[in-house]
Amino acid sequence: MDNDSGFMNRHYFLLRRLHSLSGIVPIGIFLLNHLLTNASIAWGAVNSRGSQHVSAGTIESVGEITARQVGTFQHDVTFINNMPFLILIEVSLWLGIGFHAILGVYYARTGKSNTSRYAYQDNWRYSLQRLTGYIAIFYIFYHVATLRWGWTFLSPTDTPWSHEQAASTFALALKGKVSGISAGGIAVSLFYFIGVTASVYHLANGLWTAAITWGLTVSEAAQRRWGYACAGLGAGLMVLAWSSLIGFLLLDVSSAQKIEHDLHAGHGSMVETEPHAADETQPLAEAR
């Protein structure tokens, strides 16, 4: 027997359970946070303090709502980028996702979907869990590669994402051009929609099955009750995910750029020269 499968077999139980756990901590917890942050591009509209650092002139030209949205989102992104040991958090996240993905593919390959014969709802759930896992791997890789590692050749524009101009540069990476949406932008937006939907499903259903795996929900009634809870959580996350996407698709890129310019001009200290910022991309306004 080769060493690899020997190791897998000796620690079979532990690896299985770590695989289950890693889907919740860190990945699930992170996804929840990430979607909450992103959704501020939509619900920031009700945050009256979101526009407090935007000049009156800019608010006049872009509108109060947009100013609040971009202001709130940028504030949240800046908060995250100022967190201590951010790179450690990031690396542990990447390792967690890599571990979950590699073992997940290995486990998924032990099954053989049979929904054509047994078209039960639960059987579809099972097959979808595997399909959405595969989609999420590609999606998360694309997402991180283009926005975090700066692989702009995969992006519909050459503009790298910048955490200092978070809203405008992401809207560009999604839509492909400043006004309207390019063909590449349509493809990327669609991919984001599918990818984020798959990821949310994968988490909600994974939470449901994890409770069986660990033996938390034993009776059928308990499994049903926990199922409602997971469906509710999944629906909530789905609303966050879709509202973020809609928020960014509706965002006017040049308005966002104006707002971000104000945020940095007036309150540069808020985002300037963080020593730990591993992101060396320059803000758009400065680069021009």
Partner: peptide
């Protein structure tokens, strides 16, 4: 641990 929770068995 190899059960994938498709729950066909019970049906």
């Amino acid at each position: 641990g190899d059960c994938g929770n498709a729950q066909n068995c019970v049906k």
